[in-house]
Every structure is written in C-alpha cells, then in structure tokens.
Simulated assay, not measured.
Amino acid sequence: MINGAHVIIYSRDAEADRAFFRDVLGYPHVDAGRGWLTFKLPPAEVAVHPVGERESHELFLMCDDLEQTVADLTSRGVEFVSSPEDQGWGILTSIRLPGGGELGLYQPRHQTAYDL
C-alpha cells in the first residue's frame, strides 16, 4: 500500500534552499547521508489540472492566514516574489527561495483534502 509521497525541488543552490527549509521554515528533517536533508512536510494533498503542450509540476505551501504568515516570514527575511492576490479559490503569493526558485504560498478558500 502507498503510505506517502516524496517531493523533489530542483535547485541551483541546494545547500541554501535546504538551509531555508531547515532554519527559516523550521521543518523537521533527517539526513539521508552526506548532508542530503529530507524534510517532513505539513499534511498534503494533490490535484490534477489540465495542461496544454507544456507539462509541468508545482509545489504550493498552504496556510490558514496568509496575511499573518507573510508578516511572520518577512520578519525572518523571506523575500516575496509577488503581492498576495485574490484568485477566487484562494489568496496566492510566491516566496523566492535562496537558490533562485519560487515556491507558491496560498490561503485556500476551497475545501481541503489534507485532513480527510
């Protein structure tokens, strides 16, 4: 039986992004060997969306209060790529990872599946 999922974030600066997840977000982790940290994520869900020609995958973190979460993360030095924007289904912004990538962050307004 499937008992979990493993998410991979590809990074131009993996050490900096690992430090971000460890030190800024405070996610518990294990060292899988040689400094390859694997982080425990909050409860998760997966959605399948239609796509045209270019297939891609995205990772979004979720929160109950985006305004407060943005304030907390900003006080820890996190850079936001965009201002929070109401999308109808939720309020969305993006975090700049130290390695240069982006990570979505949103407050859902839809029913969630992560605690079923």
Rank of each mutant, 00 (worst) to 15 (best):
Q111H: 10
L66A: 09
E58G: 07
R76H: 11
G100R: 06
H110Y: 12
L59P: 04
V78Q: 11
G100K: 06
M62A: 15
T112S: 13
Y114T: 00
V78I: 05
D64I: 00
L73A: 04
E79I: 03
S83D: 15
F60S: 14
Q87H: 14
E79D: 14
P108C: 09
P98K: 07
F80Y: 03
T69H: 03
Q68M: 08
I95V: 14
T93Y: 08
L59R: 05
E79G: 03
T93N: 12
E67L: 01
T93I: 07
W89L: 09
D86A: 02
E85Q: 12
W89G: 05
Y114N: 10
F80H: 08
S75N: 14
L97K: 01
G104D: 08
V78K: 10
T69S: 11
T69F: 00
P84N: 12
T112M: 02
A113Y: 05
F60E: 12
E79S: 13
I95Q: 07
T112N: 04
S82A: 15
G99C: 11
R76E: 09
E102G: 03
D64P: 03
R96E: 11
Y106D: 12
T112E: 08
E85F: 07
L66Q: 09
R76S: 07
D72V: 02
F80R: 08
S75I: 00
L66K: 06
D72W: 01
E79F: 01
A113H: 07
P84V: 03
G88K: 02
P108Q: 11
E85V: 03
E102T: 14
A113S: 12
Y114K: 02
P108E: 11
E58D: 14
Y114F: 15
L92T: 09
F60G: 06
S83K: 15
R109C: 04
C63Y: 02
M62K: 14
M62I: 05
A113E: 11
G101F: 00
